[in-house]
Design a protein around this nucleic acid. Structure first.
Lengths: 165, 165
DNA sequence: CCTGTTGACTTCACGCTTCAAGTCATCGGG
DNA sequence: CCCGATGACTTGAAGCGTGAAGTCAACAGG
C-alpha cells in the first residue's frame, strides 16, 4: 500500500508544477531584491523586525521570534546580532527566567519597519495581487492552506473561525 | 497616477498572503531537505542535471543551462564544477564556437537523475498535489502563470497553444 | 595582420546559513 | 546545599551564493 499513487505527474499537474516551481524560485528573489534595494534589509531581517513590531511590548523571546520568522534559532541569533549592531533591536535576559533572552525592537527599529513596510506591501501587490482576480485570491488562500497543512499539520487549524490578525 | 492602488492589503488579501508566504519559505525547504537526504544533492544541482537529461545529446551551453535552472551564470559555473568533480557532468569547449562551454551529462549523471527523480516527484506529490483537488490544480496553474508574467513578461507567452515539454 | 570590442565563462573576496559543539541558568533529586 | 539533567541561546568552522574583476575566443574595422 506504500505505492498507491501514480509515480509520475500527469499533464495537468506537470503544467501546474512548471509554473508554480518558477514562482517558488523567482518571487522570493524579487521581493528580497526590492527590500534590499529600497530599505537595505534582507527579507528575513524584515520579517524578524515586523514580527517584533506586532508583539506586545515589541518584545519576543528569541525562540518564539525564530519560529515567527520561519528560521532556525541559530540563524536568528546571528541576525539579531546584526540588527543589534545597527541599533534596531536590543537583547535582554528575561527577568522572569534567566534562561530566556528577550529581543526588543527599539524606537529606531520601529521607524525602520514603518519606513520599509509600504514598499514591501507595494511589491507584494505588484507581483501577487494585481495580476490576480478576486476569485484567484480566494483560491490562493485555500491552496496555500492545504499545502501548509501537508507540510506542517500543527501550523494552524483548517477552519479556525476567528479573524486572524 | 503613481498611487492608484490602496497601499495596504485588505483582509482577504492578508489571509491569502500569510498562507502563501509560509508556502514560499517552507515548501522549498522541505523539498530541498528530501532531495538532500534521499539523493545527496541540492535542489539546484538536481535541476541542472534534470535540465541536461532532457536536452538533446544531454548537452547544453552553460548560459542556457543557467537560465533553464533559474540561476546566475556564476552560480552555475561553481555547481557544474562540483558536479564535474563527482563525475556526473563533463565540460567541453563548443567545437563550433570556442567562446561557449558545453556541459554534458555523463552516464553516471544520468543514472543519478534516474535514481533521484522518483523520490523528488513523490515529495512534490505528497506536499503539493495530494492535498489539492483537481480544480485547485487548475487554479494553481492559472495563478502561477499570472504571477510569473508579472515578474518576467518574457518568461513565456500566456496562451501558447503548443504543448510544452 | 593587428587591434579594439563584445560576450561567455571563471575566479575571488565577502557575507550569510548551517551544523556541531560549547556556555549558561534553572530545576529536581539526593 | 550540591549535582546532574534539561533546555535556551551563542559561537566557530565549513559550505554555498553573490557581485566585481579577470580571462579568453571570436569578430569587425583599419
Amino acid at each position: 500500500m506504500a505505492t498507491e499513487e501514480p509515480p509520475w505527474l500527469d499533464e495537468g499537474e506537470w503544467r501546474a508544477w512548471v509554473a508554480f516551481a518558477s514562482v517558488l524560485v523567482r518571487l522570493p528573489a524579487v521581493l528580497d531584491a526590492r527590500l534590499q534595494r529600497d530599505a537595505g534589509v534582507s527579507h528575513f531581517e524584515y520579517a524578524a523586525m515586523a514580527a517584533l513590531s506586532e508583539a506586545p511590548e515589541r518584545t519576543l523571546r528569541m525562540s518564539d521570534l525564530a519560529s515567527a520568522a520561519d528560521g532556525s534559532l541559530s540563524r536568528l541569533s546571528q541576525v539579531v546580532g546584526r540588527l543589534e549592531k545597527r541599533g534596531w533591536v536590543r537583547r535582554t535576559p528575561d527577568p522572569a527566567d534567566g534562561r530566556y533572552t528577550l529581543a526588543v525592537l527599539t524606537d529606531d527599529g520601529w521607524d525602520k519597519v514603518v519606513e520599509a513596510a509600504p514598499g514591501h506591501v507595494r511589491a507584494v501587490r505588484e507581483f501577487v495581487f494585481d495580476p490576480l482576480s478576486k476569485a484567484q485570491v480566494r483560491q490562493l488562500t485555500g491552496i496555500g492552506g492545504r499545502i501548509m497543512r501537508a507540510i506542517d499539520p500543527d501550523c494552524y487549524a483548517p477552519g479556525r473561525p476567528q479573524a486572524g490578525k
